[in-house]
Amino acid sequence: MKMARVTPAYEGPPRRFGIRWTPRRQRTFWAYVFVSLPLLGLLLFFVGPIAFGLWVSLNDWNMVTPVTQMRWRGLDNYVYLLTRDPIFPRAMANTFAFAAGGVTVNVVLGLSLALLLNQSIRFKPLWRVLYFLPVMTAPLALAVLFGFLFNRNYGLVNDFLVSLGIARQPFLSHPDQALLVIIAIAIYQYVGYYIVIYLAGLQGIPKELYDAASVDGANAWQRLGYITLPLLKPVTLFVVVTNTIGALQVFDIVFATTGGGPANRTMTVVLYMYDTAFKFSRMGRASAMAFILFLIILIITLVQLRLLRDRTRG
């Protein structure tokens, strides 16, 4: 209780359903009413499904036979995926290559552009909006657009290569190039997000630090290396982790450009899970994939929390 309550003299709190409704009880009652609906949804669409999915991953199930008649498989689905499945390791490798490639390039690109935009430069809001536009665009639409731009015969990218004297490339239909193109699409789509995050981070660095360093004779590169970059470390940790987690779940871009091909060279975990579940009706195996990837994401999240805690302690 924050403040003394002045209650006018009256015959005590009202009674209803055999309960004395003190103000405190009334508030508790309403608090439960307020959380009940969101909590019900949370149970029905998150907590319940997680438990159910975990159970499905230990069974063979095609979603047609009744839930009670699933065939128990124990850890077989997991063992199969990790040791015998011909595609899953490939899908994992592709997914990690996609995440690592896209995030690394975007950290460098996003930070560089944020440093440039943080200077006294004209039309700052305009540049920010332009760089941010693809972030707002449906990944599916970008996939369609870039499928066109990277087309072998009438894509702009190949026209550009030809103007440089380089032969036309197959890009999305080439086993070694397709994943790189998909990474390029993701870089294009998300670089604006990194820029905005880094700009906010840069604005959080006290100006006095730079003034003091200048007085001490530090040049621009030294100020960048000794002040800006070290102080941006938490921001970098944040963008790297959140974007890695996001990138590990890539689906739309791959679905609409290559569908996982050629020869599964762009197959990703979520796309493979989708195919396994909704094309081949192997719910158990697909659920096991989901939990393997989930475990990896969980480890990344926990490492991030650990690193952040160490920073605040140290």
């Binding site: 608090a31 307020f34 689906f251």
Partner: peptide, 29 residues
Amino acid sequence: KYDFPGKNVLFVLILATMMVPFFVTLIPV
């Protein structure tokens, strides 16, 4: 803004579900 029995447990539950990516619940939902 309220105190009610079970509040902290429920809030931890919400923080935990925040970390669950959509694909984990896709098939069950």
